[in-house]
Design a binder for these strands. Structure first.
Lengths: 133, 133
DNA sequence: TTACATGCAAAGGATTTGCATCTAC
DNA sequence: GTAGATGCAAATCCTTTGCATGTAA
């Protein structure tokens, strides 16, 4: 575990919300200005392989990630106002089969929930956007 | 409605499965070799705006699309073996709240189901992969 | 006609990689 | 000492855009 990796990991923790590589680079460089972009990309790839972060889509042509604190099968609830992320249990666990499957055997699914967090829900402007993919 | 648009639309129909722009360009050029890549990108963007196709993720760094035949809110079931796509009703319609939301108001969700179609489920090798995002 | 579609090539932008150097263990 | 990490710059590759031309209505 090298110093840049430590800085990157703590930057992800400190962000506490969905982030792009650019977001993360900015956060990292606030503390360690010399860290290269390639290093951040490589660190995020490693964290993704280790299930420490998960890609939840795309924002402005860039990959969007969230820190994955929960173990096992779960999903993410992303606030479209501020990017805050919460974990949610899988609502499909209780849903038996699936309609319209036409002989399909479902082996996996991807689910991301979007909404407004308690803070953003009470604000005036419903905020702009966040993801796309 | 120009000739290239017509060719592209029918190519999407003929594919009948999840496709990348490259897949579509190949299919289009089998019939109309002179069609430019930019035209395909523009046509797909128009079809996406018209809800005729939907982006369901990424495969090999390229956007992955499916043709959207159903109206209204629905999801897609993508065969990881052959890319065949089926439509599925939303299994979350029946699921009331959500656990672990911590004050979140859910306004939208993205769900894509993966599995094996009837044909691929009976084959020997479970096939490789398909999406990523 | 008149606005929109097309094709080509160039541009843009995120992400990856080569390589020499450095660092953790 | 050695494998892996780093940083820089160059390279990749998907996607978009400028522009002159073509085409549908």
């Amino acid at each position: 575990m090298t110093a840049p990796r430590r800085v990157i990991a703590s930057a992800v923790d400190r962000l506490g919300r969905a982030f792009t590589i650019d977001d993360l680079v900015a956060e990292v460089r606030a503390l360690a200005p010399s860290v290269g972009i390639a290093t951040v990309y490589r660190a995020v790839a490693a964290m993704e392989a280790a299930h420490a972060v998960e890609r939840v889509g795309t924002r402005d042509e860039s990959a969007l990630y969230v820190r994955c604190t929960a173990d096992g099968h779960h999903h993410h609830l992303v606030c479209t106002g501020c990017g805050l992320v919460a974990h949610a249990t899988c609502p499909l666990d209780d849903v038996p089969p699936l309609h319209g499957t036409e002989g399909f055997v479902v082996t996996a699914h991807e689910l991301t929930l979007y909404g407004l967090c308690a803070g953003c829900a009470t604000e005036v402007s419903p905020a702009s956007e966040l993801p796309r993919s």
